[in-house]
């Protein structure tokens, strides 16, 4: 018994904590995909998923925020009904939503990097507001650039057609999510794991 046990390489405690949070946040984003908010300008209902992509970067930081989004994509790809409207499978990652979905890990990473200025986490409530706003705007632009860019290529649309169909209608909703993200981090009620 002792011989094989000595070769067990335990995962470090702070890694386990961040990893557990990343996985649970990925599941939470999946659950939000099923909660659809009817929205007059959009042909399909909108969800709060992108708000939680922001939060992944803000609260988990660049490394674990990105990891969390990758877990979300991987779980969806192998069949967890986590993409908006309960969708699952590799298809949504390659279909017209693919650009949006693949932008999530990058956006969470970007927001995390800007807000935490590196991989050591700090309390996002203590970060100057303009930096947080700037990070969220940059993240949103990234999400929509990748999302509409890929959709335009995939569906043979002119850029302005893709923007009209996949971006413009959602701008008010995105502003709302940014405001909510700021309200959440400034509330100080979500503490990052200090390592």
């Amino acid at each position: 018994m002792a011989t094989h046990e000595s070769t067990v390489d335990l995962v470090e405690g702070d890694v386990v904590r961040q990893f557990a949070r990343a996985a649970v946040l990925a599941a939470l984003i999946g659950v939000l995909g099923a909660i659809q908010i009817p929205y007059p300008l959009s042909p399909a209902p909108i969800t709060l998923q992108v708000l939680f992509v922001f939060l992944a970067g803000l609260v988990l930081g660049p490394v674990w925020g990105t990891a969390s989004m990758l877990l979300y994509l991987a779980a969806g790809a192998v069949g967890a009904p986590v993409f908006s409207g309960w969708e699952a499978g590799l298809g949504p990652l390659l279909g017209q939503t693919g650009g949006f979905l693949w932008s999530y890990p990058l956006a969470a990473g970007l927001i995390g990097l800007v807000v935490h200025r590196g991989t050591d986490l700090r309390d996002p409530a203590s970060v100057p507001l303009p930096i947080v706003v700037g990070a969220l705007v940059a993240g949103t632009v990234l999400v929509y650039a990748m999302g509409t860019g890929y959709a335009a290529w995939l569906l043979a649309l002119e850029p302005w057609e893709a923007i009209a169909g996949f971006a413009l209608p959602f701008i008010p909703a995105e502003l709302l999510k940014m405001a909510a993200a700021i309200a959440i981090v400034t509330s100080g009620r979500i503490e990052p794991v200090q390592s």
Binding site: G13, R17, L25, L55, L176, A179, A180, R189
Partner: peptide
């Protein structure tokens, strides 16, 4: 905004409590 941020705070803090126990 208020509704979205309330869902965000409550959803995330509950989820993280669960994550900490899971860890």
């Amino acid at each position: 905004v208020d509704r979205a941020s309330t869902i965000g705070i409550l959803g995330l803090s509950r989820a993280f409590d669960r994550a900490d126990r899971l860890a």
